[in-house]
Design a protein around this nucleic acid. Structure first.
Lengths: 329, 329
DNA sequence: TTGAAAGCGGTACCAA
DNA sequence: TTGGTACCGCTTTCAA
């Protein structure tokens, strides 16, 4: 069995209070006593039990991050940035993926009970759950989710890049544009769609249809393109909510010999690795930095370094490749 | 402040023992009493404190997974498979990325103190650390790391696919082969390299050089290809330790107008999404399933359902695309 | 400089 | 069917 602080105390011939002091490098311990304690710790291979410590200290030295899902490069990069900073700050990281489960709120509450603070992504849990956690005094950071009250938030810029994307395809000659994505799926998608709608509405002769795919993967984009082809109802441009969808669309069009970008233009969002190889025009967002920033904001709240709310918006960048036409001068 | 079990007991006019019984749906509680307790719980918004509970139960209902690093699609998929199963089993998930830090052993030990069991990937921590954890009685599963004693392990098949890869490029006409990867970086890479060496050694007139890149990313593969080009010392085939390296090599070769696969063949490993768009021949390994399997094995150990060691080897699959020549009949 | 002891928030055994 | 209480392993205050 694992040795406890009492075992150490007994072996060293001191009280557990003294052992605790030595453990924390407290001043007022005579050198000789300290040495005896250290020897006992060494001998027993003692490591303080985290539960006992956390219970007494009333802190976990851990924080969590809640995802809607973990598939795809986007989330992977976000965790990466998050974990790196959290580890640097000496905090353990818990992850939870809700998958739209009904039990999500309860899973999040359970996780909250293991952490000193939480990062919540997009539409993982209803607002009232977030509000309840916040009310309980738990430090929170919303990631890729619009600010709620004075809870910290981090998001990537959406509207501006979406607008530039719209101008790009319209400039490339597109009249009938389809937005491939479900605005209800996430605040990010909603913002992109809204911005697109706005720009399209201002342009002459341009129509925009919003077509929600079944999911967010390549297969879903491919299915959508396949049925458009079958119905002989190809749009001039497919502006997709993420790169996977766009890659699916692109693959099907190319397989069927459709001229891209001559006849149809395609764009994605995220700039995942495959986008570069597929020549996909897209919007790069600083995924790793999103996670890292969230981790930092959260830490400031947990440590109490900062009390005023912060709402960070990280810049995104249009990456033009061969799946869209450049307007010629 | 958060209500405790004692608050509930007071409000319901019962003892904390009774509250605990109600909490666990114990039989021997009169219906009326149970209702009063439930009412109190509701009124106080009581949720049992995880620390108190874990301390008393001497279990965490959580388990961890240790990565060398979290970048790239491989690890992302592994966590995904792991988290999904763990969540299904009602356990929280802690992740830790060691990044080759010197403090890794201590970070892992800290994590071990928060979990009922741990999955350890590849070469994240030295064998003696693993041995110590195992000796302490902590359930462990080694992932992509050769079996150590009777600790459970999960890995993907390496040698067979590596051999088929070697035969493929040799069949395609390659004589001078370069393995791009550092065998010391991970057991997986080591196995692949060893198998390749064996096959190459058996073929007539075939030489194999092992060239360790600086890292594991596209940039590292690109750098390697660039210097080979500059030295006018292109091999006939670059068999790379992972897809990112291969994609880097491939990009540089294509940019410089080198005929692939005519003059040079290139292969990767993992079959990440970008590989398909780049036409990269590679080996697909069931990344998600690796994580899922590890989670299941670990759970069996934690719950004590199984006590005999298991060593799973999941099958891999050669995926031939256009970066290698097919031997013509 | 050191120790005794009261928590931290639960679980579960033993009596009543 | 219920309550009292001894832990679980540590931190920290108060006295000595």
């Amino acid at each position: 069995m694992q040795a406890t602080i009492r075992d150490v105390a007994r072996v060293a011939g001191v009280s557990i209070a003294t052992v605790s002091r030595v453990l924390h490098g407290h001043e007022n311990v005579r050198a000789g006593t300290r040495d005896r304690v250290h020897a006992a710790i060494e001998e027993l291979q003692f490591r303080p039990n985290r539960l006992g410590r956390s219970l007494a200290e009333r802190r976990h030295a851990a924080n969590g991050i809640v995802f809607p899902d973990l598939s795809g490069p986007y989330y992977a990069e976000v965790v990466l940035g998050y974990e790196a900073v959290a580890a640097e700050l000496g905090r353990s990281v818990l992850i939870l993926s809700t998958h739209g489960r009904k039990a999500a709120p309860s899973m999040v509450e359970d996780m909250a009970g293991r952490c000193d603070g939480l990062v919540v992504l997009g539409r993982t849990v209803p607002d009232d759950v977030v509000a309840r956690l916040a009310a309980r005094g738990l430090p929170l950071v919303l990631l890729a989710r619009p600010a709620v009250g004075d809870i910290d938030s981090v998001q990537a810029e959406n509207a501006g890049s979406a607008a530039r994307l719209a101008e790009l395809v319209v400039g490339g000659g597109a009249r009938r544009i389809v937005f491939v994505g479900d605005p209800d799926s996430s605040p990010d998608v909603q913002e992109r769609c809204a911005s697109l709608t706005r720009v399209a509405g201002q342009a002459r002769d341009v129509t925009l249809d919003v077509v929600p795919p079944d999911g967010f993967g390549e297969a879903d984009g491919a299915a959508l393109a396949t049925s458009a082809l079958a119905a002989d109802a190809l749009a001039d441009a497919y502006v997709c909510a993420n790169d996977e969808l766009a890659l699916g669309v692109l693959s099907v069009l190319r397989e069927h010999g459709v001229d891209v970008p001559g006849r149809v233009q395609v764009t994605g969002w995220d700039d995942v690795m495959a986008a570069r190889y597929a020549g996909l025009t897209t919007v790069r967002q600083p995924m790793r930095e999103l996670g890292a920033t969230a981790a930092r904001l959260l830490d400031e709240r947990i440590s109490g370094t900062r009390t005023d709310p912060r709402h960070e918006v990280l810049p995104t960048q249009l990456v033009v490749r061969t799946s869209t036409s450049r307007k010629e001068a």
